[in-house]
Computed example of a mutant assay.
Amino acid sequence: MSESDQGYPSAVPVGVDTTRASIARVYDAALNGKDNFEVDRRVLDQVRTVAPGVAELAWANRDFLIRVCRFLVKQAGIDQFLDLGSGLPTAENTHQVVQRVNPDSTVVYVDNDPMVLAHARALLVGSPHTTIVAADIFRPLEVLKNPEVREELDFSRPLALFQIGTLHHYSPDDVSAIMATYIDALPSGSYVAIAHFYDPEVAEYSELARKMEEKFVHSPMGSGRFRTRAQIQALFGDLDMIEPGLVLCDDWWPEGPRLAPLSAVRRCILGGVGFKR
């Protein structure tokens, strides 16, 4: 999914409701993308009333994704990736990062947003090792039994599964059961990466997290739950956590020294990578 608009559909894809906010389009707006509508930007405007730097959640999430991709392809030798909730095209998507290191890496994106599907299918023409599949990522059996997923990925070999910036949009408390189903299906030697909105449970930042959650949930998008560390850690089940464990996204193997303190908003998103023995 390239930043270039070459090959983009020339009109809003069929099935896109421009009167309702879309998770993918709200993220796109936060990342200064162009594939969003007024209703999507209104979500961010609403959250900005309590957190002017709300877009930093999306940037911390994206930066974490890029570093995780590099680690998995360079250090762990992973060459197949299942990216759940791929979102709209932006700079440095999963396939761009990993295929720069290993051009033979296979990436399967999964999403059910009509706009995401239409744009991605147009942009991925001519990319033999990259596919997008239409499925609901919160229905793991629908994903795992999908014929395209099974055809593109070899479940007899290790792979990486991403839920980066997705699970906080699932409100029911059985989100751990969703992840357990995915993890059970992964072969030994696989990795799971998760980034999730975070309630730090300390007065200053917890108040901010809950205010952002309130605005997200009661916005036209209708989702955005800030879970505690224990709740997010539970999503990894009994996987072995890769050092430094479950930490602020910006603290997961940063690329250089930090010259300025993290903003309060960037202290409200956690990331981690687990390994299945």
Rank of each mutant, 00 (worst) to 15 (best):
H196T: 12
F226C: 02
E3Y: 14
L84D: 01
T106E: 03
P261Y: 07
D136Q: 10
C268W: 00
Q233P: 01
V108L: 06
H129G: 03
L31W: 07
D250H: 09
V16H: 05
A122M: 08
V202I: 14
P254I: 08
Q233I: 03
L123N: 01
T18L: 13
A29Q: 05
G237L: 06
I164M: 10
G224I: 02
D250S: 12
K34Q: 15
L57F: 11
F81T: 08
F138T: 05
C268E: 02
A91T: 12
S263R: 05
Y191M: 04
D63A: 14
E38Q: 13
E152V: 13
R157E: 14
I137C: 10
S156Q: 12
I66G: 06
Y109G: 03
S10D: 15
E151I: 09
Y8V: 10
L124K: 01
S171K: 14
A185F: 10
V116Y: 06
G274D: 06
D174N: 13
V133H: 03
G222L: 04
E214Y: 04
D40Q: 12
I132P: 00
V73E: 02
G165K: 03
P158C: 12
A193R: 02
T131W: 08
D154I: 05
T18I: 15
R150K: 13
T166Q: 15
F162V: 02
E201G: 01
C249I: 07
G77P: 06
G165E: 02
F236C: 03
V73W: 01
Y205S: 07
F197I: 08
V14N: 12
A122I: 01
P261A: 11
K211F: 00
K34A: 15
L246P: 03
L186R: 05
L65E: 00
A180E: 06
F71P: 00
D174Q: 10
D184I: 03
R157W: 13
Y198H: 09
R229Y: 14
R258C: 09
V149W: 07
F64G: 00
Y182R: 05
P114W: 12
D111M: 10
V247R: 10
P147Y: 14
L72H: 03
E56C: 04
A91K: 12
A24G: 09
G53N: 11
R157V: 13
C249K: 02
F275L: 09
A203L: 10
V217I: 15
